[in-house]
Design a protein around this nucleic acid. Structure first.
Lengths: 306, 306
DNA sequence: GCTGATCCATAGTTTGAGCTTATTGATTGA
DNA sequence: TCAATCAATAAGCTCAAACTATGGATCAGC
């Protein structure tokens, strides 16, 4: 009585609408003619109107049938495309990947993304930048699938894999007495006001970043906190103080700032890819594979520890 | 093995995607839980990827499932809308109606169409204007569903129903001697060049149109043929001759032309709605009903035979 | 740590929707 | 008038989707 429509009805309808002959349409569908008659009748009952006008001699579409034909075709085509798309998403060939990253790793992130997008052109990548803590939080709550962080600590719910490491360098105003040389001992900077990001943005990263100073026996006191490296370096250029920074954020310096290599035991900043432990979705593995192929290069290129 | 997808799969998938609980989803679908498990498994086999990740404790969508959910919803919604639309077309509540009409009946056609469009706002009306013969040809070959013709003859494959009738009048140049009066005997015009449409545009219409002249014993000779009334009347205004025209095409006359009532036995031009005999589609009946409601008015308004 | 509850999967059985073949009835062309 | 064509109907069959019962895994509570 209250029969539900099924795709079978649409397939049969379309075959008959094209053949306009029950016998031939049934043949094409690999069923017997009465079965087709029954199903078409059933469909007409569901729609509530005649879709074909039959005489015992000919079959043709009614207006309602003619109106329905392209729509039915469309439904089948779209569903086929949707199934395909779902399959591709399941195999990691399409979909969406949320990448959270620290702003200071933009250069490396963009390189890895370029390689990934080349391999998976149908994957839409969404980017979210922030501090290391923000990135890890996004990863935890599922807002991000991949995190790019700097100097994160080991955790049992997060997998880390090294993408690149780079040395720390000092950045000081050009008018600073030490700026005449191209390297400096950390202790020389003990009296200068230190400009750095807040420790809350990533305690371990902060500790790594200040290690050259602590190695020199300096009691680290941040005179001015800034949320991003660009601002920190602008402040240094303005003569407000000095900073210790990962090399890659110092590649382009404004006129008033100068980069100095740090003497003493080498200290490096490490950039990691972070993922949720146990998250083994194909898309993620594809991203890891793409990164893997880049990592060797990056490591060689940016490390250069003295 | 090579199972085909059915809408049942989509319905079950969507229920489970919303409930995320096999028991509850099955309950909502009024089936037992194992049946749902089976069908979902089958769907996953068809798509080729997991759509749900199940633990014995919880169910949640995979990325592929999440991607598929809105699409499946969409397919069902669109199909429902398509079925509804087909039903409405079948009941004559929506669709398309092709109306062919003679240019000289534009005024009446537009009135009837306004009424029809008010009653069937979802029906798209396509208009085609031409001569009576063109209109009838369009009707025959199915290009038009309704024809509006003037003074057509009875035919056994076409149904005619009277929409309006109107008297013939003479149109002559203002400088014509007879133009001083507001009526004229047809024989007075015997010597004037006659401007009229070609007889091939509608033999019966032509004969009706020239009847006032033939009644007066005039041997009808068309001096100048024109394809439409507007041009004919412009030629009259230019002093090139006279014409006999249905009243409604003379409502707006240019400066050089004057309308005169014809003395003698009244002759009328009839405007008919023409349809293919046996064509009883709901949309057509709706159009006929709309016309019916207008016809009384039109007949009264335009006849006024003296 | 055992017990009961919860929940999805599997096994085996039942049922009915959709299929089949055979036939009827209507129309057309020879 | 007869044969051919073609859709509808009738009656029986069959398999897929349903059912019931059960298993196995996980979790909460005493």
């Amino acid at each position: 009585m209250d029969q539900r429509i099924e795709l079978r009805h649409l397939r049969y309808f379309l075959a008959l609408a094209e053949e306009l002959h029950f016998g031939r349409a049934a043949q094409r569908l690999h069923i017997a003619q009465p079965a087709l008659s029954q199903q078409i009748r059933q469909l007409e009952k569901i729609v509530g109107v005649e879709l074909f006008r039959r005489t015992s001699r000919s079959v043709h579409l009614t207006e309602a049938g003619a109106a329905f034909q392209p729509r039915a075709r469309n439904v089948l085509d779209r569903l086929a495309a949707d199934l395909d798309e779902a399959g591709r998403v399941g195999r990691g060939e399409a979909g969406r990947l949320d990448v959270a990253f620290i702003t200071s790793a933009t250069a490396i992130v963009s390189e890895h993304l370029r390689e990934f997008s080349r391999r998976r052109p149908d994957v839409q990548v969404k980017l979210h930048d922030g501090f290391t803590t923000d990135v890890l939080a996004a990863l935890e709550r599922g807002t991000a699938d991949v995190g790019i962080v700097r100097d994160a600590e080991e955790r049992d719910d997060i997998d880390l894999s090294l993408l690149a490491s780079e040395r720390f360098v000092a950045v000081i105003p050009t008018e600073h007495p030490a700026a005449r040389c191209d390297h400096v001992e950390a202790r020389v900077l003990a009296a200068d006001p230190l400009i750095l990001f807040p420790r809350s943005a990533g305690t371990h990263a902060f500790d790594m970043n200040t290690q050259p100073l602590r190695n020199a026996g300096i009691d680290v006191q941040v005179a001015q906190e800034c949320s991003n490296w660009h601002t920190i370096i602008m402040f240094v250029a303005a003569g407000l103080g000095v900073t210790i920074a990962p090399y890659s954020v110092t590649t382009l310096l404004p006129a008033g700032a100068r980069r100095l290599e740090l003497d003493g035991p080498p200290t490096v900043s490490r950039i990691f890819m972070a993922t949720r432990r146990g998250d083994d979705r194909p898309l993620l593995q594809a991203f890891k594979a793409a990164s893997e192929s880049m990592t060797g290069r990056d490591r060689d290129r940016t490390t250069r520890v003295r």
